[in-house]
């Protein structure tokens, strides 16, 4: 299979592999440890998968905002995203 037209790079491949890995991990977790949805500070029912989605989408916004406003190394935004992820999984 020739994938040259997709213009793959190592960083984007890692990016998608991490997301795919997270999806697989959360599917396995959902099978091994079934859960009931809960209500957090957003006042909506969320499952672990919903919280993962909120985390990923929010992280994209955090990275974009960091890039647009801070001018500091982009890696630091990743640390901020980790804090945000912890907060989402704890309180949302």
């Amino acid at each position: 299979m020739n994938l040259q037209w997709m213009a793959w790079t190592a960083p984007t491949a890692i990016f998608f592999a991490v997301i795919a890995g997270l999806l697989v991990l959360f599917t396995v977790l959902a099978i091994l440890f079934p859960e009931t949805p809960r209500r957090g500070i957003l006042r909506i029912e969320t499952t672990r998968g919903d919280r993962l989605f909120i985390t990923l989408l929010g992280s994209a916004y955090i990275n974009a905002a960091w890039l647009a406003l801070s001018g500091l190394p982009q890696w630091w935004a990743l640390g901020l995203c980790a804090l945000y992820a912890a907060a989402v999984f704890r309180w949302v």
Partner: peptide, 23 residues
């Protein structure tokens, strides 16, 4: 969509040749 993500970190002058451009 994946292809668009790949394009977004590279530069091209056509002919399917790409150069890394980061963020």
């Amino acid at each position: 969509l994946m292809t668009v993500v790949n394009y977004s970190v590279q530069d091209t002058f056509g002919n399917n040749v790409f150069f890394w451009h980061g963020i």
